[in-house]
Design a protein around this nucleic acid. Structure first.
Lengths: 192, 192
DNA sequence: ACCTGAACACCGTTCAAGT
DNA sequence: ACCTGAACACCGTTCAAGT
């Protein structure tokens, strides 16, 4: 039985995860040790392990809570926005989120191999795709009168929106020089 | 003084690196231990360390020798190829190379943080850009009569060619479902 | 010089004991 | 239940000894 409230536990997990993220930004995934997170959080080893079963569960928590931008506001809006605008809003939200493209890329890399990080990443992407589909729906409705067709069109485009955003983050993580707009225009022109 | 020839040493380093790559494909960067490479190569720990000063130097060797496709044939050709064709050839060469997008992404992720892997990756990319510029030169010459301008145009476009290829590899590493052509067409259409 | 493999240091994890 | 921190197991690296 929990002696403290669910809110306390949640706040503690969040506190640990944010301490971990500060270390991750400085040292990267490979060089971040539990000892670092212990030092950064001001807690003890055992305290960390009483909130996360192991390092992997902490990593999964970070993926599910911090790796993707919140698109609720964009998804809830009835404004008509073309896929390209949605990509720009998504990238702006990601940048504003404060997690560096480098750290994001390191978690994606971990998610490219089978395992729990991959499972968590794919689950989180499913949620992102729902938000993107909602954001694209007004645009899709302008292209077809049939509501079912519009929903299908919006959902189909989420893959490509996500792919382009992923390309920008990858590029930014290593070269980190261009604005989303510059990147998108360059990619568009080179493929024409 | 080396008791064995430079060729022997080179072959031995290559043998160790290829053993490492086989393990990397199976287990990923994070879970590949020196013990794994020792087992896979059939050598001893000390033997590995007599050819590479440490795990990091082995990683740098893999980056410089195996992470980017050989574009010599494409670069040497006088054939006129648009940037998009160059991207397709580059991706075909990468796939043929046998290193999975997942392993490539893991090394890129490592290269997104300051350090020796990043330095090695950027050096290797400089070489790739030279090859890409040569491959793009016939196309650039068709767009301008001035030779210097053509060279500048070809070189400027290498950044964007590399960025799009990077987008494909990142996407492939996590979702791994589309052909380069399908990916490029989808990205082009979503940005239009 | 190249190689062997045991020894050492460090990091993730556990667990007996405290509140 | 939450937390402490010492103890344990494992992995990267070293090094005395072999050829």
């Amino acid at each position: 039985m929990p002696r403290v409230s669910a809110e306390y536990r949640q706040a503690r997990r969040d506190e640990i995860a944010r301490a971990a993220l500060r270390v991750l930004e400085r040292k990267g995934v490979r060089d971040t040790s539990i000892a670092d997170i212990v030092a950064e959080s001001g807690l003890s080893t055992g305290a960390i392990y009483s909130h996360f079963t192991n390092k992997g569960e902490l990593a999964r928590y970070i993926v599910s809570e911090f790796m993707l931008p919140r698109l609720d506001a964009i998804a809830a809006s009835a404004e008509v926005r073309a896929p390209r605008q949605i990509i720009e809003l998504m990238l702006a939200a990601t940048i504003e989120n404060g997690i560096s493209p480098a750290v994001i890329l390191q978690f994606w890399a971990e998610g490219s191999m089978p395992g729990e990080i991959r499972d968590e990443l794919l689950r989180t992407i499913v949620k992102l795709r729902s938000a993107l589909a909602a954001a694209l729906l007004p645009w899709a409705r302008q292209r077809t009168a049939d509501e079912e067709e519009a929903a299908a069109l919006a959902y189909a485009r989420t893959v490509d929106v996500a792919a382009v955003a992923q390309g920008f983050i990858s590029n930014e993580a290593i070269f980190g020089t261009r604005s989303p707009q510059e990147y998108l225009t360059a990619v568009e022109q080179i493929l024409a």
